[in-house]
Design a protein around this nucleic acid. Structure first.
Lengths: 287, 287
DNA sequence: ACCTGTCATACCCGGTAGGTATCACCGCAT
DNA sequence: ATGCGGTGATACCTACCGGGTATGACAGGT
């Protein structure tokens, strides 16, 4: 019962994701035959069939799905180990950067909270250096898992806190961000039913984990694009209250009475034991 | 920036735990020179010094400590991936055992709760087969992490729920289990101060993660040994209320007014997506 | 000084990961 | 039907590297 090797997991996940040995081999920078052999070898060692080689392509068996899922976790853990070790040893350029934290935040969210947090923490005695790592819309989980970040500001229910330790920081309502001239912009409040499925204002779509959800609305990549499209009267969006800070002149914000509240939390890998991290969390909860 | 290999992590953790290349090599079933080389190679690839080779033995650098910690997580993740995949493929003997959960429970704890849970769950339509895996005193976390178990009954504050999803099931007080003839056994209630550091009844010590904590009390391995020693008047112990079910005639139980309450939870790896697991958790919370 | 215990170095060998060439198999077009 | 393109599997070879043995370097204790 010898353990899986990381290399084998890399190979398997490549094949499982591509469902095609040739493309997977290309992605891995190797030839196809050794890849086929490696997967066969893996299946023999596990005593389990992972892939269904049908003439019409490759598909995952049940065990293969399990391995894809669990293997990704193992891969993340291994790359996180490497990254954090390199950083702890100061192999990232300047030497000995022990006292440093990487904080992942959504690019345009929680501006004021972040500012207050950084200011307050910098005033602490012995504060570590905080590197702010801007992340995409829901990339923070991945960043924490694979070691690119040590700690993150996450927003339930958009981010999932599963597998992390966290402390709640703030809770806020949500607003509908509409074109200033739109009839609904004059209302005092709105409900989700009012803004869902408006034919003239379809909800914009963000990429989640690399792909766009289906829907009628325009696809946007960042918040500036979205802001422009709203100002042009092409779409609308639902955002936490704090988004008011970046609204344009052509925008109108109307509170939503029944939108789920957005909880901003500070989250970190459950097993972290860093002193600097503990200090940052303490500062954050005192704000 | 090629990834660490599991083999390298195994080697490094062995050395980091033994702090001795020879013993580590023996534990790994290999000779010492290749082990030394492997560690050097690892240090060169990470660009970081992990071990301080001092004349008088080996010690961990800061980066080494980080790698030991993170590496263990990666090792656990990899072995969990292998184990769960094998099980999903039915490679553990009988074929295709997809619908099966391994539940880790402390050997002699929560007897009645466990009984009720298993009965209730078995009555559910489409219930999976539950394999009950008895665990040591605080071994459940490890079992969940490395895939030996899918779900566990854990007892805060003895087990740490960090890194797992969980649902609280019951809360109970604690009792002092004393020899029946002891003067304190006649009391209606006791406080922690009453029973801490009694010269005639030192608290027994359980092994935690393989080693015994220091102290004057006798070292016990299982709950039967402890019961015997208590009946003999040599020691005492503090247990949750539910421990009354296994008390002997020579024991006396006195409620402790200020002991921390014991919370029994059902816990599982945060990323689990198994249908059977969801059903078991639902059953448990409805008890 | 000697011996002992430690980790590092030198050198050799065999397994295996990876490459190239090719096969076996099917769907599909002509 | 029959070749063609595209798939994954097989055969075979090479080179690297992981592992073993023997030995060195170096410090402490006697």
């Amino acid at each position: 019962m010898d353990a899986l090797e990381i290399r084998e997991l890399r190979y398997f996940t490549a094949v499982a994701e591509e469902l095609h040995f040739g493309r997977a081999a290309e992605r891995l920078g190797m030839a196809q035959p050794p890849l086929s052999r490696a997967i066969q070898h893996l299946e023999r060692r596990l005593g389990v069939s992972l892939l269904e080689r049908d003439r019409r392509g490759v598909s995952l068996t049940g065990a293969g799905e399990v391995l894809l899922y669990e293997g990704r976790a193992a891969l993340d853990a291994a790359t996180a180990a490497a990254r954090r070790t390199r950083r702890a040893g100061g192999a990232d350029g300047q030497g000995g950067s022990r006292n440093r934290l990487v904080l992942a935040v959504k690019a345009a969210a929680s501006h004021e909270l972040l500012q207050k947090l950084l200011d307050a923490y910098a005033a602490e005695p012995g504060a570590a250096e905080i590197e702010v790592l801007p992340s995409g819309m829901c990339e923070q989980e991945e960043m924490l898992r694979d070691g690119r970040a040590d700690v993150a500001l996450m927003h339930a229910p958009f981010n999932s806190l599963a597998g992390f330790d966290s402390e709640e920081l703030t809770t806020e309502g949500q607003i509908a961000v509409l074109p200033a001239g739109h009839p609904l912009a004059a209302r005092e409040t709105l409900s989700m039913d009012d803004v869902r499925d408006l034919p003239d204002l379809p909800l914009a779509r963000w990429p989640r984990h690399g792909t766009y959800p289906p829907g009628p609305g325009p696809e946007v990549r960042d918040q500036t694009q979205l802001a422009q499209l709203i100002a042009l009267g092409r779409t609308m969006a639902v955002f936490p209250d704090s988004a008011r800070s970046w609204l344009w002149a052509g925008h109108a914000a109307v509170p939503l009475t029944d939108a789920p509240p957005v909880v901003t939390s500070i989250a970190w890998p459950a097993h972290s034991r860093s002193l600097a991290l503990a200090g940052l969390v303490r500062t954050a909860t005192r704000l």
